[in-house]
Design a binder for these strands. Sequence first.
DNA 1: AGCACGCCGACT
DNA 2: GTCGGCGTGCTC
Length: 746
Amino acid sequence: MGETVSFAEVIVDLSSRNTDRVFHYAIPPDYRDKIAVGSMVTVPFGNRHLTGYVVGFGIPPGEVRIKEIAGVIDEGPVFTPELLELARWMAENYLCSTAEAFARILSPRLQVKASRRADVLVYPALAGAEMEKALSLLGRSPKQLAVLQKAAGCPGLTKSELAAAAMTSSKTVDALLKKGLLKVSAVMPAYLQDAPGDMIKTGSLTLNQDQEAALREISASLDRGRFDVFLLHGITGSGKTEVYLRAIAAALETGRQAVALVPEISLTPQMVELFRGRFGGQVAVLHSALSGGERYQEWRRVKEGQASVVLGTRSAVFAPCPRPGLFIIDEEHEPSYKQDDHMRYHAREIALKRAQLAGAVVVLGSATPSLESFSRAVSGGPYKLLKLPRRVDERPLPRVRVIDLRQEIREGNRGIFSRPLLYALNGCLERGGQAILFLNRRGYSTVVVCRECGLVLKCPRCDISLTYHLEGRLRCHYCNHLAVLPGLCPGCGSRYIRHFGAGTQKVEEEARKIFPKARIVRMDSDSTAQKGSHQKILDAFRDGLYDILIGTQMIAKGLDLPGVTLVGVINADTALHMPDFRAAERTFQLLTQVAGRAGRGGLPGEVLIQTYSPEHYSISAAAAHDYEGFYRSEMAVRRVLGYPPFSHLARLLFTHEDEEEVRKGAEKSKELLDRLVSGRNCRVEILGPAPAPLSKIKGHFRWQLVLKGRRRENIKEIIREGLAELERDRRFKVAVNVDINPQGMF
DNA sequence: AGCACGCCGACT
DNA sequence: GTCGGCGTGCTC
């Protein structure tokens, strides 16, 4: 590598396919030592200036007129070689340009110009015996005492986090800062680093056998420094988080960094507190709610190696750790890890790829693993299965009863609540317990169910629930199969065949009528429009200000509500009959999670699930807390129908303001893709076109094609060529969005 | 993505 | 003749 090589290879920030390659630029002498692989620069391109990413150095081929780099945007490289490789992989895999992939990877730091507010983390100013003394002198101000205790237990929280943790306002924190008992610093002070034992306050100190065994395996892999994937299958309350924390500590010991991803909904102040309590100022928190400045600050700390533990949501998977050694995906089955707007990446998939590139360990944790992951962890699959089959406190799982709503109908009860649920609610209220009533988010599309035998009309070809449209027409959103709503149920001849969907308001109304004295609160996206009110309702409920909480998905996840002794699922079928091949899996996950909400305190819990399909395996298996039973049943179904994990799917979503235009566009694409498929004789099936389940959003009509094939490569190839051809055709005005392995069809 | 270049129709 | 439609191809 001689001095003569001084042309930078630059990828310009354009998303077009034909500019997705390197362009060579001369490096002016002033910039020579400022530009490295990973630098962000501005370059003249055509007749304007664009930002570009330096991906290497080399000699331009033949007769091209070379221009000079116009400027360097940031002081240092914005991505590591590992992330550069990741960007290339993403471009290849998600059918986008490299520049778009970079935009995703770097999005957490895009607002560079935003205020660079110094990161204020609060630490106790004293340690050890001096701290004890200070605490004993604070007898007359309980709030300050609480804050100082918290600060000692969890050094390195931000001011507002600390205030929240001690259940007070930031004024109390300010008072202690003024007294000099707390201080502000960007890194953990040395006197605290010497006493890490003091920091281990939260969580259990001793691991049970299963946790110990799991940790041992993970640590062994970390020591070897090799790419390994573990699936940590632990029932609710089995102490997965403690295993994560120990694994992170083990990763740090090898001198590498750890990234822990949690679903949006679990990134609560308590979660942050738990991590900061263990790792103090080494923790960087990355999530979408941070302001540009805060996010940049955290990003910077990670990149510079000051923060070696990253806790965050989906996009934190791109954290610029210098040498990542461990990626943890908590609740790996959560669909929220899949981006649903622009580039549809899956954070789990990205983590796996990054780990492979960096020789790092991945831990996927869940009580209800996705079939994709579990199938890779059984019988000699590439993942290693680690099981936590027991709860840490040895408390039994709640008793789950399945209530047959068909029986209720037969016996003349057409109300929302079954008699067993009413009875249980009554008992619960009388004993002074708390209850949660859970409704699945109302289906976007309406599904037809027989209220007498529970039969659901499904597509004969795709096994997807048919959805109800105008004038009694039923439609499959995968293949566009059409049927007419029968007057009588084809299963049992009943007249009670209709589409359904009771909202949370309806349940609330009904509950108030039946239990006029009960204090009832509702929580859904309508009632919790403004930020924070969410948490307020939950706090109030936890404090016992309400008896019954009625809500949707959002109350199902990860909440610890010790007073709850009864959980009622109003209608398990809304989830079961979503027009999606994953409906059964979602239902099982949801019910398991909901059931995990009951009996978290000292009192035993009870769960009642109302359904028209009591014999469906995803309901009976959830009731029996039997993941593996569910897994076997569902895998059999997927195999027969050729759905993932036995195949790969892709969805092409076509959108346009004009309905006719989208339909024609989708149909034209279908013909084109069919031609490509038969031309290369690969086994890819193309379903549709059909209107998307949400057929119109913000004035844009939506149609879709679903591609299904054994090999992902084949699907990608077909789409790549199809898109290229469509792009060449300038008359084609319809926007196309590609989603490889979609998580849902909405 | 922009922008120029170029090859056809209907207009001062 | 020439103004302007948009199909085609290029940008270090």
